[in-house]
């Protein structure tokens, strides 16, 4: 590299930048402060995740002193059900996230719709997912409220709305498995949502329970992430069996505005329909 040329290019760039620099006293970085992919994608409740589960990541690329947000659309299509979700999240300073989602479940055999609204809040209490030795830790709450209450009442749920509380831990290793950046996330959840709340909250077996959720992901490239998730579900309804869910996903981050996720999901038995497996597709825009 020609040093003289390099220096003059730098000098020229500085000269062009100069008028702005003299007037602008605030920090020159005002958005998109986080590294590509580290805002994650949108989970089914609207909270930053993750797909079937939220993660200890905050939606969007807002870092300290910045604001950001995301909107998404997701479809989960398994044998007897189709779940469509729209939602979004706002994040402030990589510290606090507010999320919202509208879920619309189609029970295919009965051509019946069950709609639910989800609102969430998540606060990062400690740590940086990449740069600290300790994990990044968030506290979250997800409130669900059914708009169509008939099915929940019919299957014996105690309530048609409820709140789950989560503690999430996430840690990424820049040089992880196979020299690829690797992430592990663990959630502990306390709540009584039957099938994500779509079958109501609580049942005759037991009310709120502690459950565990796990995710692991590997950045195959800086833009392409391969991972898997596992979600324990509470199984509160006496008449119906509820099984744990898991997925295998591929997420693509072409830039900081868009992410696309495709997954294979296994939701287990849902309201008597066994072995519910299928496809999960999600598109997210970030601002």
């Amino acid at each position: 590299m020609n040093l003289a040329g390099l220096t003059s290019v730098c000098a020229l760039t500085l000269l062009v930048m100069c008028p702005e620099l003299v007037s602008a006293q605030e920090q020159p970085v005002n958005r998109d402060g986080k590294i590509l992919g580290t805002g994650g994608v949108s989970s089914i409740s609207g909270a930053g995740g993750g797909g079937l589960i939220p993660w200890a990541t905050l939606s969007s690329y807002a870092d300290e002193g910045q604001r950001g947000g995301s909107v998404f659309r997701t479809r989960v299509d398994v044998d007897a059900y189709q779940l469509d979700i729209d939602g979004g999240a706002l994040a402030f300073g990589n510290r606090i996230e507010f999320s919202f989602a509208r879920q619309n479940l189609l029970v295919k055999p009965a051509n019946l719709h069950v709609r639910q609204n989800k609102t969430g809040i998540k606060v990062r209490v400690l740590g940086d997912i990449i740069f600290d030795k300790a994990p990044q830790i968030t506290l979250g709450a997800e409130r669900g409220s059914l708009r169509d209450k008939g099915l929940a009442r019919a299957v014996g749920a105690q309530h048609t709305s409820g709140t789950d509380y989560t503690v999430s831990f996430a840690k990424a290793w820049l040089n992880g498995i196979g020299h690829r950046t690797t992430l592990v996330n663990v959630n502990v959840r306390y709540g009584n949502a039957n099938q994500f709340g779509l079958l109501g909250y609580g049942g005759d077996d037991q009310d709120a329970k502690w459950t565990a959720e796990f995710a692991a992901a590997v950045f195959l490239t800086r833009q392409l992430v391969l991972g898997a998730e596992y979600r324990q579900k509470p199984d509160n309804l006496g008449a119906l069996r509820e099984e744990n869910a898991h997925d295998l996903f591929l997420a693509y981050f072409p830039n900081k505005r868009v992410s696309l996720t495709a997954a294979w999901v296994d939701l287990g038995e849902i309201a008597g329909a066994r072995n519910q497996q299928g496809v999960y597709l999600s598109a997210q825009l970030t601002f």
Binding site: Q27, V29, G33, K34, I35, D63, E64, G65, Q66, D128
Partner: peptide
Amino acid sequence: INSAEFNA
């Protein structure tokens, strides 16, 4: 220097 500048 803030976190966003470091990440940049």
